[in-house]
Simulated assay, not measured.
Amino acid sequence: MRVAHISDCFVPRLGGIEMQVNDLTRRQQEAGLSPEVLTATPLPRRMRGRSFPVPIHRSGLPIPAEIANNPIPSRPIRRRLRAGGYDLVHVHAGVGSPFAAAGVRVALELGLPVAVTVHCLPAGFRLPDVLTPWATPEVARRIALSAVSEAAARPLRERTGVDVAVVPNGLDPQDWAIEPVAHEPGVVEVVSTMRLSVRKRPLPMLAMVLAAQRRLAAAGSPVTLRLTVFGDGKLMPRMRRYVRRHGMADTVRLAGRVDRAELTEIYRRADIFLAPAHLESFGIAALEARCAGLPVVAMRATGITEFVADRREGLLADGDPGMTAALVELATDEPLRSGIAAHNRATAPPTAWTTVLDTVDREYRRAMTIRGATR
């Protein structure tokens, strides 16, 4: 089967959609499918000439910061879909994805089966239908529509009135299985991995940690709470200023990007994973940390709740004060922290790639059935 994956964002840009599409296409190739990627993310000049295992067709403008952008996306998509001999089109959608939206329209126009996976929670305001055609009843009836979590699927069902499947992000838990090492006495290491954008809330996270540190100091606790943030983005300069302004340089480290191998080693020495975002449709970074055994502190109304139950795999909160309280509780209650960590290391969530690939295959069959019924 030849599958065209259409996504505004793709590697080398880093993020949940980018890494999931990259991993999914590689796994499909290993399983005998012939996936290709159509994306608006350009390849940086420094990486020109680099080869990728899966064919990638890039039609984004070469602008800074690896930003996905093409003002007339339908033309390159139509040209590629006509020439590619594809059996099916799998579109990966974010909050508002012009390239993905064009992919849906062109693929339906060409009579191809279409599966759409929505990777984000809806925006706080309604976007134009042209940017989210999969969220309209007229288009939703013609595609196999899915989302990465129940939290993301529920609003789509309410808006479209169609069946919306859940196709979770794939991850093999054994890839993140670690044996922890001895920690520095009296220090609780908190880690967070994210793109440093407003949506991920890295600045409010610093405020949560600062409030937790002050609460611990006021109570005379012997515990030192330290935070390391992995990732990069446009908010890095503001985060550095915040750390300096509030005297957090000794307890907060902004480490930038690291690869997966480095993260597993880092998680061996960590105690808690912090996920501050409200609009987290899935939370692949939190899932990776949970598979490594770290208790996860996260917001309650997010996709993270599908693999983190309160006081079982971590602590869940309804807002920033609750997140601060959860940090203080885990920092000072070592039996609770170690009990959650032992549970997380011993139990695996249902996100292994074999299961996810089977779910994706079912969506592909559903897309073909829908295409046959609507022709």
Results as ranks from 00 to 15, higher is better:
residue 277 A to M: 07
residue 135 A to D: 12
residue 246 H to Y: 11
residue 173 P to D: 05
residue 256 G to V: 03
residue 104 V to F: 00
residue 250 D to G: 05
residue 335 P to G: 07
residue 242 Y to R: 05
residue 314 G to Y: 01
residue 245 R to G: 06
residue 85 G to A: 07
residue 158 E to I: 03
residue 121 L to E: 04
residue 29 Q to A: 11
residue 257 R to F: 10
residue 110 L to W: 00
residue 197 S to G: 13
residue 162 V to K: 01
residue 266 I to R: 11
residue 197 S to N: 08
residue 220 G to T: 05
residue 366 R to L: 10
residue 6 I to Q: 10
residue 355 T to I: 09
residue 369 T to Q: 10
residue 99 F to N: 04
residue 368 M to L: 07
residue 144 A to W: 00
residue 2 R to H: 15
residue 37 V to A: 11
residue 19 M to Y: 07
residue 217 A to V: 12
residue 166 V to C: 04
residue 316 L to Y: 01
residue 69 N to I: 15
residue 203 L to V: 14
residue 40 A to Y: 05
residue 154 R to V: 11
residue 199 R to M: 13
residue 50 R to W: 12
residue 261 A to M: 06
residue 345 R to I: 04
residue 289 A to N: 10
residue 337 R to V: 04
residue 228 T to Q: 12
residue 30 E to S: 12
residue 333 D to Q: 04
residue 87 D to K: 03
residue 37 V to T: 09
residue 274 L to R: 12
residue 286 A to K: 13
residue 35 P to E: 01
residue 317 A to C: 03
residue 240 R to C: 08
residue 71 P to H: 06
residue 10 F to H: 14
residue 127 L to I: 08
residue 318 D to T: 06
residue 42 P to G: 11
residue 293 G to S: 13
residue 363 E to W: 00
residue 232 D to T: 09
residue 328 V to M: 05
residue 167 V to C: 08
residue 66 E to V: 15
residue 342 A to S: 06
residue 304 I to F: 01
residue 289 A to E: 09
residue 138 E to K: 11
residue 357 L to F: 03
residue 161 G to T: 10
residue 41 T to S: 14
residue 194 M to R: 14
residue 232 D to R: 11
residue 139 V to P: 04
residue 234 K to E: 14
residue 72 I to Q: 13
residue 278 H to N: 07
residue 257 R to V: 09
residue 323 M to C: 08
residue 65 A to S: 14
residue 310 D to E: 03
residue 285 A to Q: 02
residue 64 P to A: 08
residue 321 P to T: 00
residue 158 E to S: 11
residue 210 L to S: 10
residue 329 E to R: 13
residue 358 D to N: 11
residue 11 V to E: 14
residue 90 H to M: 02
residue 80 R to T: 08
residue 328 V to C: 08
residue 373 A to D: 05
residue 326 A to T: 02
residue 154 R to Y: 02
residue 208 M to D: 14
residue 342 A to V: 04
residue 301 A to W: 04
residue 68 A to H: 06
residue 198 V to K: 06
residue 209 V to F: 02
residue 335 P to H: 01
residue 248 M to C: 06
residue 2 R to W: 02
residue 107 A to M: 09
residue 104 V to D: 03
residue 235 L to H: 02
residue 88 L to Q: 04
residue 262 E to L: 06
